[in-house]
């Protein structure tokens, strides 16, 4: 379902210098699979997630999702692709700090211009599923870390995407909340979502519902 073919990614730093983040990466993820990308900080995990979400383009190689060449999409179509396929849980959550939880969760639906009934129904169902309904009207910067993460998860799921991407989801959580997050992932897996998690948190290693653990080192897949 998700295929990375000979993907290389380098970033321009300063005027001329380039940093290579990914070197000739090949990866194949099947529908409904849960993948854990592990590796030290700076190994290239986030870069892979960005490429899958079409938030950036590979320097060379291609990325194919559902038989579509994601790496060739124009900016507009990349947005449409994200809107319809991707739920991204960012490392720093990337919530709009002065908006309420409800309004943050609503953000991916805004350009869709759904009927009020449809939008309300989608909102209600994710807010209940991720237990944030009681904080719906609270401005997110006043929420606790765990609550902020649940808002981020609800927002990633509100448009019912097939692919869930999470970047270091437990980096800012204590162990109890981290375990709660892992239970949420288990639930998402049962909904047949394809899930890609980048993490170096040992809590994710050896989980029963994780299909594969892939180790990245210096921009290459080690195993």
């Amino acid at each position: 379902m998700i295929e990375l073919k000979n993907v290389t990614k380098s970033y321009l730093v300063g005027k001329t210098q380039r940093v290579t983040a990914l070197k000739d990466v090949n990866l194949n993820i099947k529908e409904g699979e849960v993948i854990v990308l592990k590796g030290a900080s700076g190994s290239g995990k986030s870069s892979i997630l960005s490429l899958i979400a079409a938030l950036s383009k590979p320097t060379s190689g291609e990325i194919i999702v559902d038989e579509k060449k994601i790496s060739k999409l124009s900016d507009n179509f990349a947005s449409l692709y994200r809107r319809d396929n991707i739920g991204f849980i960012f490392q720093k959550y990337n919530l709009v700090p002065n908006l309420s939880a409800r309004d943050n969760i609503l953000l991916p639906l805004v350009p869709l211009n759904l009927s009020a009934k449809e939008a309300q129904e989608k909102l209600r169902s994710v807010m209940e599923m991720f237990e944030i309904a009681h904080k719906a009207e609270t401005i997110v910067k006043n929420l606790s870390g765990g609550e902020q993460q649940r808002v981020a998860i609800a927002r990633a799921n509100v448009n019912n995407p097939k692919i869930i991407i999470a970047d270091e989801p437990t980096a800012n959580l204590d162990e109890k909340l981290s375990l709660a997050f892992i239970e949420i992932l288990r639930e998402l897996k049962s909904l047949n979502k394809t899930i890609v998690i980048a993490t170096h948190d040992p809590l994710f290693f050896g989980l029963d519902f994780v299909d594969r653990e892939i180790e990245i080192h210096n921009g290459s897949i080690v195993r």
């Binding site: 938030l55 900016d75 947005s79 991204f88 919530l95």
Partner: peptide
């Protein structure tokens, strides 16, 4: 800037 980036990442087009 960050807010615009977030909106784009959530599937907003430049138009939106």
């Amino acid at each position: 800037k960050r807010e615009v980036g977030i909106l784009k990442a959530l599937g907003w087009r430049i138009d939106d």
